[in-house]
Design a protein around this nucleic acid. Structure first.
Lengths: 212, 212, 212, 212
DNA sequence: ACGGGCGGGACGACCCGTTTTT
DNA sequence: AAAAACGGGTCGTCCCGCCCGT
């Protein structure tokens, strides 16, 4: 799984690095560090200096690439969204019930990039304040997810794979809620909780509810 | 439903006010304000001065009653926990499957005191940072809830109301996850989402899964 | 001549200090220091910390009394304006030509409080930038002075002391210009220039031009 | 009237361009921009980046030509001084009272190059601070002007055009003061003030005072 | 020679929690 | 319970180097 957040440098000359991780650019490193820190200490709890230190710069150095903190926040959010979306799209490509079945594996994806995981819930809660700079972003993310899942269910109904009387709206919001909630719990349950297994079980029950 | 968060003043002398709302003490007002602000802007995002302003004091005034911010945080948390617990205890008093059925109404409780609602999820995310002052509190809350629900299910099994092959651990964590997640969504879904109805549906499905 | 800039404490009890300078309040001291520094290094060239140091505080200490720098600037300006106006009013009380004759002594006033002197020209030049926070203030000051002098001349004409064909507008602006310019020069001419004598000479010539 | 502020390139080789405007060199453009900005926002209020932007460079680009800001300041000052002096010299070439009469037209010169105008007063006030980098420059400029005018008057006395009892020192400083002051006022008096006419009137009065 | 990309060190204003004094 | 003051930050700016392309 590629988690690179950097500019993928198109110049071929010095290194060919086929298939390997592209070399980190400073900008990419900064965004990576920001995602990690925002995700673990919140936006307000993360200082530019802390991010800078992580990539071996001073705060002035970071500010050179991102004139203000909000710009950095936006960049981190966008990057996170992009990654998430890209993977989702691949995963759900078949559409309909099959797509939902595929989401069973989503848990393992999450476990591999915990920074992104926490970034999202942290953003979700910070966005509660109506004047937060991330509110719009979060709201849109929820909207998109909801529409996506409702669409999948609709597709399944059309294809005759899913029972038509299913309450797609409720299922979509319940799924998202469960996924958010379980990720949150993960941070508080030492090793007791296997996110992967737990998520798989939810999907098993879900498919059972939906399938004809 | 009593939403008072203030010291209930047990001293009988000047006023008996039986049955009425206990008179607002300054300390109580401060805690109320703190809960609200912590819940909406996070702990780090809330300044003592902001709390003070809300109750018509200066920050020095607030600090007169709570020597440091952490003391205030603890007080707010404790108050929130106490309220939650009290209600829960009443609600779940019958135990077993009946108690779980009763939780259907929990959604409406939540809708009535939104500050408490957001306080909890906000705390949950702030607690992610391993050095957060609220981490222990949150962890314990999750633990308590988990044990409580698992206990309820066990009771139901003992009483022969619940199928013994049920995975109590998973059900408990799924329930809590859903409840956390759905509350979060609530802040981003204008009026589209009826928390009460959604929660009821989850419990209906749950009871269906559990009952013999 | 009273140059006090402090709150004149009306409570009689603890100190009587009759005739002496009233005890400096912190706020007063800060404004004094600000006037001095703004006057000598300009507004942009003066840091809050520098002001603070002068009165034995830290910058946070100063910021406690004046929430932002602009508030401090306004306070300093207002204080300066008030002092200037008060003295002017006393000086010009008789009106007409007599008032203008009295202004001869203005030079000595200026020499006694050099900080105020430089404050004003410094502000005048900083106000040139159209987005400066002091521009409005300076513009109004010029307007007021102009109106005042034109009024004085008009009065003199009415009383038959001044020749009616005098160009009051030009005389007013020329006087202000000379006064501004000569104060500026003062900073560059070691001791060669006696401001007092120079100003007196200007007024002698002026009165000669005006008087019947 | 030539307002070019760039290096007049004495090297004859590539272009002869006799009489035409010298071609803009980058260095010249930078100095032009610096003069304008120093004149309107002060030296401290002007950032290298702002100057750079005006000529389409980055700050690094500007710093390539002028290693430090002070070097740039000096260059701008020198350029301004040179221009001023050149024109003055032409204007005052006849010497004596005739030279002073010719200065009547100085007002119109000023109006044509307002940047230079404000540059000078701005520098005059910034130079007040005894540790300012421009102080020496300004002081010298005042000295030069003073000597020049006193010389002119002396010449006039020698030639029998000016009354010998005139106080040359006072007249010189008064003239300079008026000229400084009136330029300052110009920035605050919408269109009310015709600098040209006002200056002419001053010179008329002056000549009247001086001439036999 | 010219100019940009990148980065840092110093400092700017302003904020926040806290202690001390009244 | 307010008032005064402080210490330690936080974001952001400014000037200026270093190194790299043309």
């Amino acid at each position: 799984l590629d988690t690179e957040l950097n500019e993928p440098r198109r110049d071929a000359s010095p290194a060919q690095h086929r298939g390997g991780r592209p070399p980190k650019t400073t900008v990419g490193e900064i965004i990576d560090a920001a995602i990690e820190l925002f995700g673990s200490r919140g936006v307000k709890g993360t200082t530019i200096a802390a991010i800078a230190e992580r990539v071996g710069l001073t705060d002035a150095g970071v500010l050179h690439h991102f004139p203000t903190k909000s710009v950095l926040i936006e960049a981190a959010l966008e990057r996170g969204l992009l990654l998430q979306t890209t993977r989702m799209r691949e995963l759900l490509e078949p559409g309909g019930l099959e797509a939902i079945r595929r989401m069973r594996g989503w848990g393992s994806i999450v476990e591999e990039s915990p920074e992104l995981t926490s970034l999202q819930i942290v953003m979700s809660t910070e966005g509660i304040a109506s004047d937060s700079p991330v509110r719009d972003y979060v709201q849109q993310r929820y909207e998109n997810l909801h529409v996506l899942i409702v669409g999948l269910i609709g597709q399944g109904i059309d294809r005759g794979e899913i029972r038509p009387e299913v309450d797609a709206d409720w299922e979509a919001s319940a799924l998202v809620a469960y996924l958010d909630g379980i990720r949150l719990q993960r941070f508080y349950s030492g090793k007791r909780l296997s996110l992967e297994a737990a998520v798989q079980r939810y999907f098993d029950l879900l498919v059972e509810r939906l399938a004809i």
